[in-house]
């Protein structure tokens, strides 16, 4: 087992590796989506009971929790690549970070949107300035800020570094959101949003929720790699390997 991982850190090698992985991620995404949606709509109870007797609208949980998890996870991964880029000055790391941001922003928006559509029938409001909702909104603005800052600076290397710094500073939001949702002590959590506790969820509901989360994760890989490949080609347009690639494609 002597794989040279650094080989894949070069843009042309990663370009072709990602090209081979994308169909696999799409296949996984679609399979998991079908299983997750089928389970969520046909293998779960229509109405909840116990201390939280919600009606059919609770089914929004399958996309709401998954989107919210992805919004935080993708931000974390984005910051890791941004930090690696700053320290080691690797071209590909910055491109990774830039490729993740739009997908992260989409999932953050979806967490807010699906949360609003769930909040209206259950709590009685689309929106409230609850600490958990507010911090998710701030996370959305962090993604938008990162994308905006990057596009506002013409010099690519400067844009990469400046937006990477912004992303690292914004990382402060992730533990705040995570803590406020997974608040360990009810005595310290005056909020409208319920806490997160996977042990109090019915097995079928939990299965659908976890399957949908995996589906969204695989989707994130596929979408991010697609964006990354375009980004690599754009930035390396002058290089010999891109020219060879174009000639090869032309001959096919």
């Amino acid at each position: 087992m002597n794989v040279n991982w650094f080989k894949f850190a070069s843009p042309p090698a990663f370009y072709s590796l990602a090209g081979r992985l994308i169909p696999i991620f799409w296949g996984l995404t679609l399979t998991l989506l079908v299983i997750g949606l089928y389970w969520g709509f046909f293998q779960t109870t229509d109405q909840l009971g116990g201390s939280n007797p919600q009606k059919e609208y609770y089914r929004i949980i399958f996309i709401h929790v998954s989107s919210a998890w992805m919004s935080m996870w993708l931000y974390f991964v984005m910051v890791v690549w941004a930090a690696i880029g700053l320290v080691f000055n690797t071209r590909l790391s910055f491109m990774m970070a830039k490729a993740i941001a739009p997908t992260g922003a989409v999932f953050t928006f979806l967490a807010l949107w699906t949360g609003a559509f769930w909040g209206r029938p259950s709590w009685g409001t689309y929106w409230d300035w609850d600490p958990r909702l507010t911090s998710e909104l701030v996370l959305f603005f962090m993604y938008i800020g990162y994308i905006a800052l990057h596009s506002a600076i013409d010099d690519i290397r400067r844009a990469d570094r400046a937006s990477a710094l912004l992303a690292i500073v914004g990382l402060v939001m992730v533990p705040v959101i995570f803590w406020s949702i997974n608040c360990p002590d009810p005595n310290q959590c005056a909020a409208l949003h319920q806490r997160s506790n996977l042990t109090k969820i019915d097995g079928n509901i939990l299965f659908a929720m976890l399957t949908m989360s995996l589906a969204f994760w695989m989707y994130s890989f596929a979408a991010t790699f697609m964006r990354l490949r375009s980004l690599i080609l754009t930035r390396e347009a002058e290089s010999i390997w891109v020219r060879e690639l174009l000639t090869q494609r032309g001959e096919q």
Binding site: Q47, E56, Y57, R59, I60, I63, T114
Partner: peptide, 12 residues
């Protein structure tokens, strides 16, 4: 969806 079509399908 038990009368909650607007919310469920609005989200999905």
């Amino acid at each position: 969806q038990g009368g909650y079509a607007f919310f469920v399908w609005g989200a999905y």
